[in-house]
């Protein structure tokens, strides 16, 4: 079960990622709880396994349009599928890694697993997940935190 302050850690991680990487702010909608084990996903998902002091997953999921513009804002000219997958994994890795500032060293993160073009394959390990909606420019994405 996540505490409010812990959710705030991920909200700040998400906003900091966009602000620092693109010099354009993202807005975050109200985080909400999903209890049916199906928090949903967009076309590309970068998923981080969490072990150690907490167990579960954190994933960042976004449509191709957002990730393409994000790459371009980062001065990356190669917007191939490979680079889009690389980016979605890197966003998930960065937000999860930054969470160790508050969760500590024993919040152990895996290397990213990327799921593309098959949103149905994105599954949460527990029924309860927190979804943090992210809006950047005209695009929407989500950060999903599912921890024991």
């Amino acid at each position: 079960m996540l505490k409010e302050a812990e959710i705030r850690t991920f909200v700040e991680g998400a906003t900091n990622y966009f602000e620092t990487s693109t010099q354009q702010s993202a807005t975050v909608g109200s985080p909400y709880l999903v209890t049916d084990g199906n928090p949903g996903a967009y076309e590309y998902t970068g998923l981080i396994g969490i072990s150690g002091s907490r167990k579960g997953i954190v994933y960042f999921s976004a449509p191709r349009g957002m990730l393409t513009v994000l790459l371009m804002r980062m001065q990356e000219t190669d917007t191939s599928d490979e680079n889009i997958k690389d980016l979605v994994g890197e966003v998930a890795n960065t937000i999860s890694g930054n969470a160790r500032r508050d969760f500590g060293k024993n919040f152990v993160i895996s290397v990213p697993v990327v799921i593309a073009h098959d949103a149905d394959k994105v599954a949460a390990p527990h029924r309860r997940s927190y979804v943090i909606p992210i809006n950047w420019r005209t695009h929407s994405a989500k950060l999903v935190v599912c921890l024991e």
Binding site: S21, N93, T94, G97, R100, R101
Partner: peptide, 23 residues
């Protein structure tokens, strides 16, 4: 991206000279 102080200290102790946090 690992932003906790313990990780930075550990890397420095193992021989790194500086630490830059992503993003």
């Amino acid at each position: 991206a690992l932003a906790d102080k313990a990780t930075a200290v550990d890397a420095i102790e193992k021989g790194a000279n500086g630490f830059l946090c992503k993003p």
